[in-house]
Design a protein around this nucleic acid. Structure first.
Length: 438
RNA sequence: GCCCGGGUGGUGUAGCCCGGCCUAUCAUGCGGGCCUGUCGAGCCCGCGACUCGGGUUCAAAUCCCGACCCGGGCGCCA
């Protein structure tokens, strides 16, 4: 960008070190703060890797640079070309004495929120001005770690022989019943945003791909209003042939451990920015049966009638004894969707599981029904009409292998790993009951 | 969606119970001034706010009703 400084090497603030002392470097970033001492001005420059102090003694820099630095607004974008100096008095031990201090784009003042965090901002305010919020290293760290988690998940599943696929997010009316769908207009037809790739990934089991995964958005039109629900979320879904619920639980728990290992290995500095320490969970995760779970809650006064979903207060009681990762397995068939495989000898219970971290549900999965007649029967028992599922059911008539799978909430996984108090913290632009912008 | 609590300068807050010395507190910010080693720089001067709509009252930031939004809890969430 600045042709006159061919010898200046572009560096990130965090890269400036001993080898640069006496040399010319070029830095791009934002003005984090300005400390104006009259004849001496300190500008703290921030880029995505950290901070560095730009020091402007009036007598040692050009009048132009000095004047510009004195009146620059916080959060303006600047280009600095200058000589690196080792300086014990400077934060980080190095400072840059600029030859050039150019404002590439001035920021308006006052700012809608304080990036330097001298004054805190509420989550709502932060989300309204998310791009500014993301300039805080502590906030940016969340998304650098999220990136790492997603990358870890991809590489792990690829190594396990899963093939990444993309299924449609615009679907026709009949899906699985249950949750509310967002209606959209699709030319002359009625359509909805998909709540889950479930039906499609099962159909793909009949394709011979054998093991597939998808990382993509899911949409739920529920009017929930909690710190762990969103109306648009990212789901990590797998489906695998010739295996059962035990087989995919094994994949899931090893995946979680791998994510912890990778984040620890690759995101040490971001964990530090956030002041978080990660302990890699131990394998295998404990398996708690549905019946044990409701007993545990019942002993502390939270009675769950057999067959019903486990309430939030009950899960919180269980979480007191099981604060880490664990599975709740063998759910009542009637509490799970129609495609979950019932046990042969005890069909009121099915081969299903939820992955929990404390009271937070992270994933749920099951061995699926691959037998056509049984699937039809379960569909009807659940009050749904087979004719609405023809594209799905057809796949079960021409050689559908036994299979199993799960769906893992990516945002919830991030929340669990980093101990975020609100799922919105880990989503760039969350969509909830009231928030549609930005 | 239900229950409880809340909405005050750009941001975060005090004040609200017990209406009137509120021309509304403090911090940060912003504008101006002084200042050559700050690192939450310091000092001086200034700027800037009662969510919206109704009601009660001589008088409303303060009390009442409604809407919208926020926080906590719950429900719903195959």
């Amino acid at each position: 960008m600045s042709a006159g400084n061919a010898e200046a090497v572009r560096k990130y603030t965090a890269e400036v070190g001993e080898e640069d002392v006496g040399k010319l470097v070029k830095l791009y970033g934002w003005v984090h703060e300005v400390r104006d001492h009259g004849g001496l001005v300190f500008v703290v420059l921030r880029d995505r890797e950290g901070f560095i102090q730009i020091t402007l003694p009036k007598k040692k820099v050009s009048p132009d640079a000095f004047k510009t630095a004195k009146k620059v607004h916080r959060e303006s974008v600047v280009e600095v070309v200058g000589v690196v100096k080792a300086e014990p008095k400077a934060p980080g031990g190095y400072e840059v004495i600029p030859e050039k201090f150019i404002v590439l784009n001035e920021a308006e003042a006052p700012l809608p929120l304080d990036v330097a965090e001298k004054v805190p901002a509420e989550l709502d305010t932060r989300l309204d001005h998310r791009f500014l919020d993301l300039r805080k290293p502590r906030v940016q760290a969340i998304f650098r770690i999220r990136h790492c988690i997603l990358q870890s998940v991809r590489s792990f599943l690829c190594e396990e022989g899963f093939i990444e696929v993309n299924t449609p997010k615009i679907v026709s009316t009949a899906t699985e019943g249950g949750t509310e769908l967002f209606p959209i207009s699709y030319f002359e037809k009625e359509a909805f945003l998909n709540q889950s790739p479930q039906l499609y990934k099962q159909v793909l089991m009949a394709s011979g791909l054998e093991r597939v995964f998808e990382i993509g958005p899911i949409f739920r039109a529920e009017e929930h209003n909690t710190v762990r629900h969103l109306n648009e979320a990212v789901s990590i879904d797998i489906e695998a042939s010739f295996t059962d619920h035990e087989g995919v639980m094994d994949v899931l728990e090893r995946l979680v451990v791998k994510v912890y290992e990778d984040v620890n290995e690759k995101c040490g500095r971001y964990l530090e920015w956030m002041n978080v320490k990660l302990e890699v969970p131990e394998l295998p995760f404990e398996r708690l049966s549905y019946e044990e779970a409701i007993d545990m809650a019942g002993r502390k006064g939270e009675e769950i009638p057999w067959g019903e979903d486990i309430s939030t207060p009950a899960l919180k009681i269980i979480a007191e004894e099981m604060p880490e990762f664990y599975f709740i397995v063998d759910w009542p068939t009637k509490s799970k969707p129609f495609y979950a495989m019932p046990y042969e000898e005890r069909p009121e219970v099915c081969k299903s599981f939820d992955l929990m971290k404390g009271y937070l549900e992270l994933a749920s999965g099951a061995q699926r029904i691959h037998v056509y007649d049984l699937l039809i029967r379960r569909l009807e028992e659940c009050g749904m009409s087979p004719k609405d599922f023809e594209f799905y059911l057809e796949a079960f008539r021409y050689g559908m292998p036994p299979h199993a799978g799960w769906g893992l909430g990516a945002d919830r996984l991030l929340m669990a790993v980093l101990g975020l108090k609100n799922i919105r913290e880990g989503v760039l632009f969350p969509r909830d009951r009231n928030r549609l912008v930005p």
